[in-house]
């Protein structure tokens, strides 16, 4: 028998990783803005997580799983893209236009705020969603998104100022 698939390890995976399935799904939804694609990505990510779990040594399984989900989402051909953030970005958050989260809106009555969040550039909305909706620390968000803590801070600040209608287009 493959030692990596021992009952103890399988039990550890179920105990440490599965409680974060909802957070994983929500992050994928924020990144992809599509429940079906989010489900696919989490499924792929779980398979990867199961495979790599033998080498997991950290004390933060949530950040570890979300990092895998995030990388899986970003590596999809139709996944999120880094978007140039210019001076008009604030206007585009509010202006009507193609509705990227139409599929989400079908199942839930989304607030204006949800729609504005969904229109933030992907690297901003993932930081904001992890902070506000998963209550993660800057350090954990940095681990998940693979950037320094200072970048997390500036992304959060840009996201919030965009939502507050105070876009200033500051480059990172």
């Amino acid at each position: 028998m493959n030692p990596d698939a021992s009952p103890a390890r399988t039990e550890a995976f179920a105990r440490l990783v599965l409680p974060h399935l909802d957070a994983a799904y929500r992050l994928a939804r924020w990144l992809l803005r599509d429940p079906d694609a989010a489900q696919d990505v989490v499924q792929d990510a779980l398979v990867r997580a199961m495979t790599y779990f033998a080498s997991f040594r950290g004390d933060n399984p949530r950040a570890w799983l979300l990092q895998i989900v995030r990388n899986t989402a970003w590596s999809r051909p139709r996944g999120p893209r880094l978007e140039a953030l210019d001076d008009d970005a604030g206007a585009s958050l509010i202006a009507p236009g193609p509705d990227p989260e139409a599929a989400l809106a079908q199942t839930e009555a989304h607030s204006q705020l949800s729609r504005m969040m969904a229109r933030l550039p992907a690297e901003l909305r993932e930081c904001l969603a992890l902070r506000e909706l998963e209550d993660m620390s800057y350090r954990d968000i940095a681990e998940v998104t693979g950037v320094p803590v200072g970048t997390v801070m500036s992304r959060l600040f840009r996201a919030r100022k965009l939502l507050l209608g105070q876009a200033q287009g500051n480059p990172e």
């Binding site: 909802d22 799904y25 939804r29 429940p35 489900q39 839930e108 607030s111 705020l113 949800s114």
Partner: peptide
């Protein structure tokens, strides 16, 4: 308060 937190299906 307002933004939903859906659970995984």
């Amino acid at each position: 308060a307002d933004v939903p937190r859906p659970t995984a299906p």
